[in-house]
Amino acid sequence: MELTQDFEVGINERIQRDRALSEALLGEIDETLAEGEDSVAQELLRMLVVNTVGFAALSPSLSMTGDELKTALAHDAQTNPASLSDIASALKLALGVSAS
């Protein structure tokens, strides 16, 4: 089921203003990766990166360009779990969230 535009906008706005939500979503990303739900983790990572630090700011810590990171987190990308975990770790560091 696809999310409606209003719902997506509301979630995006809440991520931007609610640090606790971002931290909870990072925890959820860890869980989804552990359970092998890579596509869910990828979508959550994309949403968090877009609404927090941005691709260009996060990409140098991953030794890639902003466009490469954007491509890695695209809806149709086949990004491996190790790369998703690296992106999650870099995002945690950028947001000052302790690694779990």
Rank of each mutant, 00 (worst) to 15 (best):
I15Y: 01
I15L: 11
I15H: 01
Q16A: 13
Q16N: 05
R17Y: 11
R17Q: 15
R17E: 09
R17C: 09
R17D: 02
D18E: 14
D18A: 09
R19L: 15
R19S: 03
R19K: 10
A20L: 10
A20K: 13
A20R: 03
L21M: 13
L21E: 03
S22F: 04
S22V: 11
S22L: 01
S22C: 15
E23M: 13
E23P: 04
A24G: 00
A24P: 00
L25T: 12
L25V: 13
L26W: 03
L26D: 02
L26R: 07
L26Q: 02
L26E: 04
G27E: 13
G27R: 06
G27A: 07
G27C: 08
G27H: 06
E28H: 13
E28S: 14
E28F: 12
E28G: 06
I29V: 12
I29K: 08
D30N: 14
D30R: 14
D30Y: 05
D30W: 00
D30K: 12
D30H: 15
E31D: 15
E31T: 15
E31H: 02
T32R: 08
L33Y: 08
L33N: 04
L33K: 11
A34E: 15
A34Q: 12
A34R: 15
E35H: 06
E35K: 14
E35T: 11
E35C: 14
E35M: 14
G36N: 01
G36S: 03
G36D: 06
G36H: 03
E37V: 12
E37C: 09
E37S: 11
D38P: 00
D38N: 07
D38C: 02
D38E: 12
D38T: 02
D38V: 04
S39N: 12
S39W: 01
S39Y: 05
S39D: 15
S39I: 08
V40S: 11
V40E: 01
A41E: 03
A41Y: 10
A41S: 09
Q42C: 13
Q42V: 08
E43A: 14
E43S: 10
E43W: 00
L44Y: 06
L44A: 10
L44N: 02
L44G: 00
L44E: 04
L45F: 09
R46Y: 07
R46G: 06
M47W: 07
M47H: 12
M47E: 10
M47N: 12
M47Q: 15
L48Q: 04
L48N: 08
L48M: 10
L48V: 08
V49G: 02
V50A: 03
V50Y: 05
V50D: 12
N51Y: 00
N51H: 04
T52R: 05
T52F: 07
T52N: 10
V53I: 12
G54T: 07
G54F: 05
G54L: 03
G54H: 00
G54S: 03
F55E: 01
F55D: 09
A56L: 01
A56K: 07
A56P: 04
A57F: 05
A57L: 01
L58E: 03
L58H: 02
L58S: 07
S59Y: 06
S59E: 04
S59W: 05
P60H: 01
P60D: 05
P60R: 04
P60Y: 07
P60N: 01
